[in-house]
Simulated scan of single mutants.
Amino acid sequence: MRVFDADRQEWAGDERETRFNGDQQMQAVEQGQMLRRAAVVLAVVGLCFLIWALGWKGEPQPVKEPAAAQPTATESWDGDGESSAEPSAESPAATSAATPPPGYEVVQDSEGFRSAVPSGWERTSHPSQYGMAVVEYRSSDGSRRLQVFAVMETSPYASLQAAQLESRKLNGYEVITLEESSGAARKAATHEYRADEVAGESQSFTRHVIDHRFEAEDGQRYAVVAYGSDADGSDDEQELLDTALRWFCPPRKQCAAPTG
């Protein structure tokens, strides 16, 4: 029987056929041995990989401790003049404790209110017909004064209108402004004037007065009045008033220290 020799591209005779069949059998045996060796090698490699993978997955991972939050604190002033720190998420710059301007000190008055006045000023008071006593802080030379009292009338502006009727009787009275504050969260009004005489003052010189009346956090109405000499301008009285108002807290209320 003749067979086609693919390697030689020819038909082989019986002798060549026998030799060809033998060659094919030897090649088949060798290919089978190679396949078995390859299978063994792959099995060993696969087993090694499986052992490594199981060992890697079982290895414990390091535990990271959560970062501890560092709360900042804001300082507030209570009705007794004490300060307390409370946790806050704000930045330290925003919650730093406020301090009054140089030369001023925060006072917790015995009438219950808090304010800020020039350091070393003398305090006096006298009874009032309504609410707390009229409190005065005065400079050592008597030329400057800060007055704090409760207001009787139903609104700050109505109270100033009534007060102006009395102020107009003073010698040398000259009104600078009498108006309600616009855009304020609470009702307020201001009466600014000059006068050659002022009730409660014995020294004779022209005074500059800023009388500010307002509704405070407790819903009640109060007055803070700054007195000084008109000869040195109005800036010092305005600063005296602004500082006292900025730190003002009515009796029996807890107010945060001013910011900014």
Rank of each mutant, 00 (worst) to 15 (best):
I51C: 06
D141V: 05
M132F: 02
R194C: 04
R36E: 14
T177R: 15
V45H: 00
S88Y: 02
R168C: 02
A12G: 12
E122H: 11
G13V: 03
Q164Y: 02
Y193I: 04
E217S: 15
A43P: 01
H212K: 07
V45S: 07
E237Y: 01
R123S: 07
L165P: 01
T154P: 08
T154A: 15
E215P: 03
W77P: 00
T243I: 06
R207C: 04
M34Q: 13
R194V: 00
S202G: 02
A97Q: 10
A163V: 01
K169S: 12
V63W: 04
E15S: 11
E153P: 02
Q254L: 08
C255D: 08
A85L: 13
L160S: 10
R246G: 00
P60Q: 06
R252H: 08
Q25N: 15
T206F: 01
A67D: 12
M132R: 12
L240Y: 00
S96A: 15
E111D: 15
P250I: 02
A97E: 15
T206W: 01
K57C: 01
F149C: 05
S96Q: 15
L170M: 14
V45I: 10
A85T: 04
E217A: 11
P62S: 10
L47F: 00
R168P: 01
G81D: 06
P100W: 04
S229R: 15
A244Q: 02
G228Y: 06
P101V: 05
Y222I: 04
Q254Y: 04
V135Y: 04
Y130K: 13
L170N: 12
F214N: 06
L42N: 03
A38D: 08
R186M: 13
A43G: 15
E111L: 11
A6G: 06
E197M: 14
G79T: 05
Y227E: 09
A28I: 04
S143K: 13
A257L: 14
G233H: 09
G200W: 03
G260A: 14
T206Q: 13
Q147T: 14
Y104Q: 06
E111R: 14
D141W: 06
A85E: 12
A38H: 05
D196C: 07
T206D: 07
S84Y: 07
